[in-house]
Design a protein around this nucleic acid. Structure first.
Lengths: 183, 183
DNA sequence: TTGACATAATTAGGAAGCTAACTATAATGA
DNA sequence: TCATTATAGTTAGCTTCCTAATTATGTCAA
């Protein structure tokens, strides 16, 4: 499943929200505002991240692969596991690894134990690329978050946790409510 | 600029974060955790939205266009304005409108005032499609947010506002810090 | 008036994701 | 044992985004 988030430059004004509530009474203005702001801020952050990475000649997908490899003690993993952790298809991971291998940032090593499988290894060049990019990335994350006191971070993370826990409700019950709605 | 957010299924454990901090001392674990959780929750929400819309035969891009049109008093706008508000290129908007027009959800009307311009109008079919989709969408947003008390919504929106305001720092100063870092 | 520039929309071609099909290898069980 | 099924990775073809170029029209100032 492809995940494209649009930029939503134009959040609804209170007047517009009111207009929608009049037509659709089940709308909860507060919940909708939070939902839209969340999407909006996240897409802005993701765009900023893209811009930062592109200065270093990297794309987000390939960069996350490098990070996932660096997390491993032996700097090594397999395409399937990487795809799973990154939430992309194995086909997409093949493409990401092709790009990284071409740039010499990772190396594919064929496994003796299971000849279907491939070990992907972060190369010295890849590690060195991360050593250039990560300080820049971390500095930017720190800067754009620095107005937020420690206390608020905890609050934000708590709130996000609550939303995550509420997400199963999204799939589970909304359908039946809709049916009730349409009767 | 294309905006693809990967799913980041695998947030770093405290141990892994610690490992990264040791190599990159400028890393701020709290800020990074907030940053990653924010991206993670937003992508989950966006995926859930996709799933909801696809049940109604819609894709996110086209759906947002319908909403933008419905916000207008005369249900009408132009491709340029829609592209601007949605944060996509005009070329992409052409494609979105092609799809919507093919399904009869919008109508292109050539303007007499400015013959370069096209007026895009939400059709009765399009309005009726929204009348089916929006109650379902709003019900789901309400459900997945319902564990969050009103007070927390205000807190969340305040925090997101602070982050948005901090974002210029992302582009402005990180570069110089990086240079200092690399000396 | 008309030449230069600006603007609206589209078209053409490329990037990076997806699903489905394919190849090779491994595991299972009658 | 060996046919069936499962798994790892890749390839092929599609989608929807993008940028750049194109076409048509409008604006402005010499």
């Amino acid at each position: 499943m492809k995940l494209i988030m649009l930029q939503l430059r134009d959040l609804p004004t209170p007047e517009i929200l009111q207009k929608f509530v009049q037509r659709y009474p089940e709308a909860d203005v507060t919940a909708i505002s939070s939902f839209l702001m969340l999407l909006r801020v996240a897409t802005d952050l993701s765009l900023a991240l893209d811009a930062c990475l592109s200065k270093h000649g990297l794309l987000q997908g390939r960069w996350w692969v490098l990070i996932l490899l660096m997390r491993e003690d032996n700097l090594t993993s397999t395409p399937s596991v990487l795809a799973e952790k990154l939430g992309v298809s194995r086909a997409t991971m093949t493409g990401l690894l092709d790009g990284l291998e071409q740039g010499g940032l990772v190396k594919r090593v064929f496994s003796q134990a299971d000849r279907r499988s491939v070990q992907v290894q972060l190369s010295a060049v890849g590690q060195s690329k991360l050593d250039t990019v990560m300080p820049d990335y971390y500095a930017r994350v720190r800067l754009c978050m620095q107005q937020l006191p420690q206390q608020q971070h905890a609050e934000l993370q708590k709130i996000l946790g609550v939303i995550v826990q509420g997400m199963p409700a999204w799939d589970a019950q909304a359908g039946s409510l809709t049916i009730k709605q349409e009767l």
